[in-house]
Write a protein that binds this DNA or RNA. Structure first.
Length: 850
RNA sequence: GCGGACGUGGCGGAACCGGUAGACGCAGCGGACUUAAAAUCCGCUUCCCUAUGGGAGUGUGGGUUCGAUCCCCACCGUCCGCACCA
């Protein structure tokens, strides 16, 4: 009996699939559509097992849905702009486009080798001019509409990558890619008005019922809507020329009578105005700016303040004035960049007030506290209670008092109820050469002018110089010099390019018809969208998934899409992690270059080649930069693609992170061999035995049900466990006959989403027509999948004391009689009197006795 | 600090609605086949004890229930997100 030889079998079936075109999605088919996609990869050059796991998952779903009769769209593309290509260009002096397309070719080959059932006819890369030209087209439409704008402002500057970052790309004060501390810089920037959609982005999260709660919650927190009061404290006495007062935002207008100061952000325009004539204040502002961004400075969080000497008037009591401070803890980015401080009911204000000796007046009384003696010491009281010390609000609950305060301020014309968001507009310009050019020309006379539609795409030039840091597009000798589309005079092109998150914010719509002359083929998109199942990493919970939702809504309002949300279902798969290894000189080292020795409880790592000791670092997500990658190709070389696919899917539930170990591959390889040997075996000729046939058929139908349910519930690891069991069953019934044929037919089809090549080979050996990939999923007979006899455990006082056999569906009284007649149970009940017998149909019996 | 998730054998994990805890795999042990090994196949494998039986057991301590890995409360631990957000 020859062993299964994946090296011969696998390429044969991939060729057969390609020839038959079984994975081609048909626009407008009469079948129900199903759109499943994984987040497209950055073409780093090589697939690692994390990719393999991700795409294998999507492929299981795609193959399963296809077998269930759906017209499946399972596309693939490349998120191809970005810094690694520039870095490669800088290091090796090669063209980033060449580097990128070579990587794409290599990774496409690896993905194809994995046997993922992708419609390759729809493939594109975001660096294809045909793609980014269409992106430029819709970008200009949004500009025309006012959703794109330019603004001078403080931006997050990554000093290592030498580019601007969006707020979403700053993690703990550091660049999301470079990990370098982010600086604040003043720059003219391009923005997308995502805040126009803040409410809808928040509200429609509720419609995403097939998204993980965690992701919805993270987006909710990121948008950070809060309701409160925006109001102005007029200057009392001397003020700032031309300014009526200080406008603050608060969510606690109920505590206005507890106010003891008003404070401005160091970056507030009023602060800047005052600092011009006040060197001490200017020095304070400078001091705040210095410490402001570093992680350590935020952690220690010492409250610093500067008393401007000015005073503002409290709105509710004539003659009551509050001092105006500048304080380092007030963010210019949030609310109005100014607050009123109520130390008794806000911890931060309390810390500040204690430090600078400002009054602390409680105005919210906890239930049961004595208004005469209640005081706040070092801990602000932030819970519910009744308002006191507050004139017209006295006796109200907090929520009622908020309404009353807002009403009063509105009546006085000093402010109004307001909603404020944490979400900021999306800064989309990057000072990089390898990105989608912003299709705008700057003319001295006409200003910023859109490039006319018939001149799109604005293509990147060849021969950019990446050998120095900074924007290679900007310093290209000729590219930016052009003429103004309006007046024909000399003009320069915009040399900023778009954030790569723009590229990935609409690609799912382009797959519907990637050759369309418009950005989005409306008919095709109406047919395919929304994506039924999107699969990707949790790290994109806010960034990519928020941007894609926003762009979808913006394009919908342009009439380019008919959907409100791009992704009806989202699955966030776990990451594949691995230890990291680092040489003494700081270079990262790949796991396959390292040997690990265990001495007692300590583990030491050395380079296999030289014996040099390397440091064992943290367990992290596999990434090219840390070099802690394991290539699926190595697994596939030794065990075949199917075993590799089973390995990455079998050990852990899909949503969980897994620390990579090659241990599982032996089990996967055995499964492949065991399945094959059943198809390869000569059937044993035995006289028919009706009881055995029935038993076998029951097991087959149970297996079909179990595997089907597991796939539908995204329990791929359990589905594979059920396959293991089913092969064991098939093995115990070697006699040839209809039941065996039924079992083998089912086995091949159940295995197909996981081990598609093996399944085809088995299908052929069975003598079936056509490809498994184009064959309907097996259907189980419920009557066979359910046993007609049940083994019920019998408990006495909750402890298992025996079991009985009854027919399925036996009534309570029937079961009770059988239990009480059972001699073994009777022995257990000796000397006890039965209080109660609980029978759960087809499940369990519990006798309560004392 | 705020919000969330998770905690089950030597290991990865299973248990879908509150109903036999540990499916399936890995590793380990024993056996078959073999001159031998590999491969393959079969069996055992939560822990403890005075062992054809009994007891304990799903991070810890309580609670609800006939019955809790599952629900509730408190605590411990791990991980993730946000964080001077007014």
């Amino acid at each position: 009996m020859p062993r299964y030889n994946p090296k011969e079998v696998e390429p044969k079936w991939r060729a057969a699939w390609a020839e038959a075109g079984v994975f081609r999605a048909e626009n407008g088919s009469a079948k129900p559509k199903y759109y499943v996609m994984e987040m497209f990869p950055y073409p780093s050059g090589r697939l690692h097992v994390g990719h393999a796991r991700n795409y294998a998952m999507g492929d299981v779903v795609a193959r399963f849905k296809r077998a269930r009769g759906f017209n499946v769209l399972h596309p693939m593309g490349w998120d191809a702009f970005g810094l690694p290509a520039e870095n490669a260009a800088a290091e090796r002096g090669i063209d980033p486009a060449k580097w990128t397309y070579e990587n794409i070719a290599a990774m496409r080959g690896e993905l194809q080798r994995l046997g993922v059932s992708i419609d390759w006819s729809r493939e594109f890369a975001t660096c294809d001019p045909e793609y980014y030209g269409q992106q430029q087209a819709w970008f200009l439409r949004l500009w025309k509409k006012g959703l794109v704008y330019r603004k001078d402002g403080l931006v997050n500057w990554d000093p290592v990558d030498m580019t601007v970052l969006a707020n979403e790309q700053v993690i703990d004060g550091r660049g999301w890619r470079s990990d370098a501390p982010v600086e604040r810089r003043k720059l003219t920037q391009w923005f997308l008005r995502i805040t126009d959609y803040a409410d809808e982005l928040l509200e429609s999260l509720a419609t995403l019922d097939r998204w993980p709660d965690k992701v919805r919650l993270m987006q909710e927190n990121w948008i950070g809507r809060s309701k409160g009061l925006r109001m102005t404290f007029p200057f009392a006495g001397e003020g700032v020329a031309g300014e009526p007062g200080v406008t603050v935002y608060t969510t606690r207008p109920d505590t206005l009578f507890g106010a003891s100061f008003v404070a401005l952000s160091p970056e507030h325009p009023l602060t800047e105005a005052m600092a011009r004539g006040n060197p001490a204040l200017a020095a304070f502002v400078e001091q705040c700016r210095k410490g402001g961004t570093s992680e350590a400075a935020i952690e220690t969080a010492e409250k610093l303040g500067f008393d401007t000497g000015l005073r503002v008037a409290h709105p509710f009591r004539a003659g009551w004035t509050l001092p105006l401070w500048v304080a380092n803890f007030i963010l210019m980015d949030y609310g109005t960049g100014a607050i009123f401080g109520c130390p008794a009911h806000d911890q931060r204000d309390l810390d500040f007030a204690r430090k600078y000796g400002l009054p602390v007046t409680p105005v919210v009384l906890p239930a049961g506290a004595d208004p005469a003696t209640f005081a706040v010491d070092d801990e602000a009281y932030v819970e519910a209670g009744r308002i006191f010390n507050s004139e017209f609000m006295d006796g109200m609950e907090v929520e009622a008092a908020k309404v009353a305060a807002i009403d009063r301020i509105e009546a006085m014309d000093l402010g109004e109820g307001a909603t404020v968001y944490r979400l900021r507009d999306w800064g989309i310009a990057r000072q990089r050469g390898w990105g989608c050019p912003i299709p705008v020309v700057h003319c001295e006379k006409c200003g910023a002018v859109a490039v006319p539609h018939d001149q799109l795409p604005v293509r990147l030039p060849e021969g950019m110089d990446f050998s120095r840091p900074g924007n290679a597009l900007d310093r290209h000798p000729t590219w930016k010099h052009t003429t103004c589309p309006d007046c024909g005079g000399s003009a320069t092109r915009e040399t900023d390019t778009l954030d790569t998150f723009v590229d990935s914010s609409w690609y799912f719509a382009r797959y519907a018809n990637p050759g369309a002359a418009e950005p989005i083929d409306k008919d095709a998109a109406d047919y395919w969208l929304p994506v039924d199942q999107y699969i990707g990493g949790i790290e994109h919970a806010v960034l990519h998934l928020l941007y894609a939702r926003f762009v979808t809504k913006a394009l919908r309002d342009e009439g380019m899409l008919a959907i409100d949300e791009p992704f009806a279902g989202l699955f966030t798969q776990g990451m594949v992690t691995h230890e990291t290894y680092r040489r003494q000189n700081g270079e990262w080292v790949q796991p396959d270059e390292v040997e690990i020795a265990t001495e007692g409880t300590t583990r030491r790592a050395r380079l296999s080649a030289s014996g040099e000791v390397v440091t064992i670092g943290d367990i992290e997500k596999m990434s090219k930069s840390k070099r802690n990658v394991v290539a699926p190709a190595d697994l596939a070389d030794s065990y075949g693609v199917d075993a590799a696919r089973i390995t990455v899917l079998s050990d852990s539930p899909p949503e969980r992170d897994v620390q990579w170990t090659s241990a599982g591959v032996d089990g996967a390889w055995r499964l492949v061999g065991r399945i094959w040997s059943e198809f390869d075996a000569e059937p044993v000729i035995e006289p028919p035995d009706a009881a055995r046939e029935t038993e076998f058929r029951r097991a087959t139908h149970r297996a079909i049900k179990a595997v089907t349910d597991a796939i539908e519930g995204w329990r791929f690891n359990s589905a594979i466990a059920r396959l293991h069991e089913f092969v064991g069953v098939v093995r115990r019934f070697p006699e040839g006959g209809p039941a065996r044929r039924e079992a083998l037919s089912a086995l091949a089809r159940l295995a197909a989403p996981f081990a598609p090549h093996l399944a085809e080979e088995c299908w052929e050996r069975l003598g079936e027509e056509g490809l498994v990939a184009a064959t309907p999923w097996p259907v189980y007979d419920p009557a066979l999948a359910e046993d007609d006899e049940r083994v019920l455990p019998v408990q006495v006082n909750g402890k298992r004391r025996g079991e009985i056999r009854v027919r399925a569906g036996a009534s309570e009284s029937e079961v009770e009689k059988i239990v009480l007649d059972d001699p073994e149970i009777a022995r257990r009940l000796e000397g006890l009197s039965i209080r109660r017998v609980i029978v759960v149909k087809d499940r369990i019996v519990n006798i309560v006795a004392a």
